[in-house]
Each structure stands twice: as structure tokens, then as C-alpha cells.
Amino acid sequence: MDVWLEAALNGPWGRDRQPGIPVTADEIVADALAAAGAGAAVIHLHAYDERSGRQRDAYEIYAPIIERIRSSVDVVCCPTIPFAGSGDSTEPLSPAERFAAVERLLEAGLIEWSVVDPGSVNISLADDVAQGREGFVYANAESHVRHGLALAQAHRMTPSYAIYEPGFLRLGAALHRAVPGAPQPVYRFMFTDQFTFGFPPQEWALQAYLRLLRDEAPGAPWMVAGLGVDVEPLIGAAVRAGGHVRAGLEDAPLGCPDGNRELVERAARLITDAGGTLATAAQVRAGTAGLP
């Protein structure tokens, strides 16, 4: 089986939470090329303001980074949208404002996937909860999800669904059915060790998600991923069940001492050990092209 390996390079953490993430354009490009060399066919990245060291989802930052990556290696690039509710995106945004950079990147022909997360959830570290420090609500109103799916429909973009809780899967499948012609989303099951949402990275939890997926979106592609998690123990089970894999510093436990290259190399090795074959970007495109 051809297994899609996605590298999630940095996430929204900033270096205070995840010291090893790439932040500058040069760092992001270097890590993307290293991850591609280690076997990743999909590159997921967050754009950063280099002066503040915080996430800033601006076309002017994304575009030159993605152009540099694509000029050197054939990969599928997947940006994100503002992490609504976090310290970097506290002000309410309309759906069009939230997806503004994504829409421009689509019009420029620079991306093929984008984050379209179908639900809202409390993002809280277990340690913070114990010490009385409050997390935040990651908010994705239905109108925002519909807007993202409409862009997917118009531009033949693959929506990347982060499934933090089982309800995300049910709502995401229902909204996809409500937007005829939108390409089939990729369902990323978001496991965690350090946060308090969703499921821990256990095989019983993977089986629960797969049972629900069979009911709500039979045949949809899926992968194991997460935040603040070591997903490596699940990779073999995921590959044997027909799934795909995401690895990288966005997902790794906060404070991870390894870099993106090492994380992707280990994931690639576990995929092949389980009998999978690393897919190329062309094979990823072919795997999503015919999905309704």
C-alpha cells in the first residue's frame, strides 16, 4: 500500500512551547526540503512573522516560502488558517477574512490542500489545568467550514480535516455532503498525550474512529496525527488498517529534542516496517483526484 507521509513542520506554538520549530522563511524551507528528502510527500506549514516569532497567516509570507519549496522538490503543500481563539488570533474574523491567504494561494496555483477544521474544541494542556492556567476555545463556526468547503469545490482543493473529537468527524462528513462537488476531505485523527481533548494514542481509540468513519464517510482517506503526542506507536496499526501518517514538530510532545528530519525519518521507517510503501506527491494527487 502507498502510504502518504505528511510533515507538520511547526504549528502555532512559537519557540517558547516548541524550541526546535522552524520560524524564519529560510528555516521553514530547509526543514521542508529535509522532510521531503526523508520521505514526506505532503508539507504542512504555518507562516510566521519573523520579527515577533508568532504565527501570521499572510499570503505575502506563505507565497515565497511555498514557491521556494516547490521549485526544489515535488510535494503537496498545505497551509493553515488563523488558530481562532489563540493568542495569535483573538479578534473575530469573518469566513472570508480567515481564508483570505488560502484563497489567494489557490488562485496563484501554489497549494492543493488546506486546513478546514470541522468543529470547535477546548485546547488545554493537562499540566496547565492542574495549575489553574486556562486554555482557549479553538473556534470553527459552521459558516467557516462551509466557506472552506466552497473554496475546495471551486478550486478542486483537498480539505484537510483535523478530527479533535468524534463530533468533528460527524459534522465534517455532514457538511461535506451539503457541498456537492467538494473533493473528499482527508480525516486526520488528532490524538494527544499532553492536552485534554479527544483520545490518547491507543489502538482502541483508532478503532473507534475507524468505526465511526465507516458510518459517516465510507472510503474517505485518513491519517493518524495529533498535538502534544508521540504517535509512533500507532503507525504500524494505521498502516495495516489502510491509513496514512503525519509526523513533525507541530504534533510532537512540546519540548521535543528531535528535529523534523529525525521525526519524519523515524515515521518513514515505521511505515516501511509495517509493509507500507512511501507515496510520492504524484501518488497522493492520484489518490485524491477521483474522490467525490
Rank of each mutant, 00 (worst) to 15 (best):
Gly132His: 07
His144Gly: 15
Arg170Val: 12
Gly119Met: 11
Gly132Ile: 03
Arg246His: 13
Glu232Trp: 15
Ser86Asp: 01
Gly53Asn: 07
Gly259His: 09
Gly132Cys: 04
Gly275Pro: 05
Tyr164Thr: 10
Asp74Val: 06
Asp193Ile: 01
Pro79Trp: 07
Ala141Cys: 05
His244Asp: 11
Gly275Val: 09
Ala84Trp: 11
Glu27Val: 09
Pro185Leu: 02
Val102Met: 00
Leu175Thr: 00
Glu216Thr: 11
Gln194Pro: 06
Ala139Lys: 09
Ser160Lys: 13
Val145Gln: 10
Tyr161Ser: 11
Tyr187Gly: 01
Glu112Tyr: 06
Gly226Leu: 08
Pro233Ala: 09
Ala208Lys: 14
Val264Met: 02
Gly259Glu: 01
Ala238Phe: 06
Thr192Gly: 03
Met1Gly: 15
Gly14Trp: 02
Asp127Thr: 02
Asp251Ala: 14
Asp31Val: 09
Ala178Phe: 07
Arg70Lys: 15
Val186His: 13
Ala289Arg: 14
Val76Leu: 13
Ile43Ser: 09
Leu9Val: 11
Trp4Asn: 15
Ala30Trp: 13
Gly135Gln: 06
Leu125Thr: 10
Ala238Gln: 03
Gly275His: 12
Leu169Arg: 06
Leu125Gln: 09
Phe168Pro: 10
Tyr62Met: 10
Ala47Glu: 01
Ala241Trp: 12
Ile123Lys: 01
Asn122Gly: 13
Met157Phe: 03
Ala139Met: 12
Asp74Trp: 06
Glu6Lys: 13
Pro200Ala: 12
Leu169Pro: 08
Arg68Ile: 01
Gln55Cys: 10
His155Gly: 03
Gly228Asp: 08
Val145Ile: 10
Arg285Cys: 00
Pro185Cys: 01
Gly167Met: 14
Cys256Pro: 03
Glu165Ala: 09
Gly37His: 05
Pro233Gln: 02
Asn122Cys: 13
Ala241Ser: 05
Gln202Gly: 14
Ile271Arg: 06
Val102Ala: 06
Ser120Thr: 08
Ala268Ile: 04
Ser124Gly: 13
Gln55Ile: 14
Pro180Asp: 08
Leu212Tyr: 05
Glu216Gly: 05
Asp215Glu: 15
Leu9Lys: 11
Thr288Asn: 03
His176Leu: 12
Ile271Asn: 01
Val3Ile: 11
Glu262Asp: 14
Gln194Asp: 10
Phe195Trp: 12
Arg156Met: 01
Glu27Ile: 07
Asp26Ser: 14
Tyr164Met: 10
Gly259Ala: 06
Asp74Lys: 09
Leu227Asp: 15
Ala152Thr: 11
Gly255Cys: 00
Glu27Leu: 10
Pro257Met: 00
Ser120Lys: 08
Val224Leu: 11
Pro64Phe: 01
Asp31Gly: 00
Arg98Cys: 10
Asp251Gly: 13
Arg285Glu: 02
Tyr209Met: 08
Ala7Asp: 05
Val23Asn: 14
Val75Arg: 02
Leu254His: 04
Ala126Gly: 12
Leu149Pro: 12
Arg246Ser: 14
Phe197Trp: 08
Arg214Gly: 15
Leu93Gly: 04
Val115Glu: 08
Gly243Trp: 07
Arg170Met: 08
Leu278Ile: 08
Met1Ala: 14
Leu151Val: 06
Ala32Thr: 00
Asp273His: 13
Gly20Trp: 12
Gly242Ala: 07
Leu33Tyr: 05
Ser89Glu: 09
Leu227Lys: 12
Ala289Met: 04
Ala289Thr: 03
Arg70Asn: 14
Tyr59Pro: 05
Ser86Val: 10
Ala100Asn: 07
Gly109Met: 01
